[in-house]
């Protein structure tokens, strides 16, 4: 075929970016739900939900873009992962639905308010756990034959994926608590300062277990990381450095730094994961190139994206700007 340049790499970059955007953006608002049951009081819960209410909707659109973008650029990923994770995907969607309507209903309910509190917390927890389990399932790999998934319905659910599921729950909670440090003040902020180190330690424990465990799950990862010193060792080092920055920033009671450093922690961990698996996108059998859609389709969509995405970014920024300002009060 006449392909002037390799679109697969470009699309890997775009999809990687969309997924990272989703994880970071929906991460901090899922985090609010996870922290919900532990919040100091009802007034704090009002503020917590308020702090993410204006952005929640747009954040979730990145998930839809991730889904359809993968279908467009790497259809094999879509058609193997979704069947393999069938039950988990259902749980995630159910969680997102409950959580979504809880946003809508909670402030309007009085006698039934506690129900929506639970819907928000439960939905966020389930969605976050399911997403973390997906990460673990991805590391484990998928049993395929001739381009289709042939494993069982619960192959994805192992001690390892439960570990990664809980890890992401803790990670999102960390994003959530550092977000609160940035966006709130007073009692709630102090509470967030207090729980952040605890959450960070939980994340680091999971991080450690997963790092030790992963090479046993996957021989390829073992070779990649332990055949001599390579540049990718920089990634975990940077991730650990971010963790250190979070600790220090919390101690100094800085406001913006903990959140920024947490995003860094996520970013380097994510890159480390991708580096372990590269170029496999449906491990253990298929690479990015095996999974890619037709060149014409990738090109057709890319041309549109180059034109439309900047416009999208512009008006999203505009609407954020209109609603700028600090989150203070709660609802009555």
């Amino acid at each position: 075929m006449d392909q002037p340049f390799d679109l697969v790499i470009i699309w890997a970059g775009i999809i990687g970016f969309a997924v990272m955007m989703y994880v970071l953006m929906d991460g901090f608002d899922l985090g609010q739900g996870i922290l919900y049951p532990f919040a100091p009081d009802d007034h704090s819960r009002d503020i917590m939900m308020n702090s993410v209410a204006p952005v929640w909707d747009g954040n979730e659109t990145w998930l839809v873009l991730g889904g359809t973008g993968i279908l467009a650029a790497f259809p094999l990923v879509y058609s193997v992962l979704l069947p393999a994770l069938y039950i988990g995907v259902f749980l995630m969607l159910a969680g997102l639905i409950f959580r979504g309507v809880a946003f809508e209903f909670r402030f309007k309910a009085n006698t039934t308010k506690y129900l929506w509190d639970w819907a928000f917390a439960g939905g966020s927890f389930v969605a976050a756990f399911a997403q973390g389990a997906v990460v673990g399932a991805y590391v484990q790999g998928f049993e395929t034959n001739n381009l289709v998934y042939v494993g069982g319905p619960l192959d994805w659910l192992t001690p390892f994926t439960i570990m990664t599921g809980l890890g992401l729950v803790a990670g999102y909670a960390l994003l959530g608590s550092t977000w609160l440090i940035m966006k709130t003040e007073g009692e709630l902020q102090q509470w967030a300062y207090k729980i952040t180190p605890i959450l960070l330690i939980m994340v680091l424990v999971v991080f450690g277990v997963v790092s030790i465990y992963t090479p046993f799950v996957d021989q390829g990862v073992l070779n990649r990381w332990f055949n001599g010193v390579s540049i990718i060792w920089l990634l975990p080092v940077l991730a650990l450095y971010c963790a250190f920055l979070i600790f220090r920033a919390v101690k100094k009671q800085q406001e913006g730094m903990p959140f920024v450093a947490t995003m860094g922690l996520f970013l380097f961990t994510y890159l480390g994961l991708l580096a372990s698996k590269w170029p496999y996108i449906v491990p253990p059998d298929y690479t990015l190139w095996d999974a890619a859609s037709a060149y014409e389709s990738q090109l057709f969509l890319l041309l549109g994206f180059l034109f439309v995405i900047p416009i999208v970014m512009a008006y999203i920024a505009w609407s954020y700007w209109i609603f700028r300002g600090k989150v203070k009060g709660g609802y009555h």
Partner: peptide
């Protein structure tokens, strides 16, 4: 203080 969400 108003939730900036559709149904709210």
């Amino acid at each position: 203080e108003k939730a900036q969400r559709p149904i709210s």
